[in-house]
Amino acid sequence: MNKKLIMILFVAVTGKIIAQSEKYQTVEETVNKMLEIISVEVGEEPNWTEYRNLFLPTAQKILLNPKAKNPANRVRSFSVEEFIRYIGPLYGRDGFNEKVLGVTIDEFNGVANVFQSYHAKNLKGTYDKKGINSYQLVWINNRWWIASTTWATETEESKIPEKYLNKQ
């Protein structure tokens, strides 16, 4: 499928035309920018406008928590706007820092899948976790867009596999 047809289908499905941007010319640059934006000091708000600009309008953010006591909380799905509304305030309130531990990228014909292992913590010392962000990206209108992210934290029983660490 050619890129013009993909863009036409995208506009037809979303009902929105996304402005061209010279930003985010590589997959890695795009996913790393997300971590840069949400890494803020206590009292500092992430640049949510720039954050929104990383994602397709229909993008989903999915949190996996298989150990949640309530089965309804084991998979939580948010639109980008819901994520900003419900989870977003925690970043500025507590400060946040997320660093890349390793990246594995698979790409074909305008579609990319990324496993990005991370170490995340808030600056108040009440949250400190490692895990994996899984991104699905698409190349549309001369740049990469995040179509969805799914993330899961490491547990004692399920450690991040070595193959996803230190591959930058």
Rank of each mutant, 00 (worst) to 15 (best):
N65T: 07
V75E: 06
Y164K: 07
I8S: 12
P71W: 01
D106Y: 11
V80W: 02
T155P: 07
I18A: 11
A147P: 12
Q20R: 15
E157Y: 11
T30L: 06
T149N: 05
K61S: 00
N2W: 02
V111L: 08
S79D: 05
I87W: 00
R76W: 03
L63G: 05
K69M: 14
N47W: 06
R74N: 10
V11E: 12
E154F: 04
G95R: 11
A59L: 01
I105R: 12
T30S: 08
V42I: 04
D128N: 15
N141L: 02
Q136A: 10
K61Y: 05
F96K: 13
M34W: 14
T126M: 13
T104N: 12
P161I: 06
S117R: 11
L137T: 07
E157K: 15
G95Y: 09
P57A: 08
I8G: 15
W48Q: 10
K61A: 13
L9A: 15
I160G: 13
R93C: 04
F55R: 11
A120T: 02
V27Q: 11
L90F: 15
A68V: 05
I17Q: 15
G95D: 03
I140E: 04
L137Y: 10
N166H: 15
L9V: 10
N2G: 09
N141A: 01
K23N: 09
I38F: 03
E28N: 14
K130D: 13
G102H: 09
T30Y: 07
T26C: 01
L101N: 15
F83N: 00
A19E: 13
E45H: 12
T153K: 12
I84Y: 00
V27T: 06
R74G: 06
N32F: 01
E154Y: 02
R74H: 00
T49Y: 14
N166T: 10
N65E: 10
G110E: 03
H119Q: 13
I160T: 04
Y164M: 08
D128P: 00
N97Y: 06
Y86R: 06
E41F: 00
I132W: 09
T126Y: 08
I105K: 13
F55D: 03
K61M: 08
K163R: 12
T30N: 02
I84W: 04
F108S: 14
W139S: 12
K61Q: 11
I146G: 05
I17W: 10
S39G: 01
M1F: 14
V100H: 08
V13P: 10
T30F: 02
G15Q: 10
E50Y: 05
P89G: 00
E157I: 06
G125W: 00
A152F: 14
G102P: 13
N141D: 00
Y24P: 12
Y91W: 07
K23L: 01
L64T: 09
K3P: 02
Y51S: 05
I105N: 02
E45M: 07
W48M: 08
R74Y: 04
K121S: 07
P66A: 13
T49I: 00
K129L: 09
I140G: 11
K4C: 02
Y135L: 01
E98S: 11
I140V: 14
A19F: 06
L101C: 12
I38T: 11
G43Q: 05
E81T: 01
I37T: 08
H119V: 03
N73M: 15
W151R: 11
V80F: 00
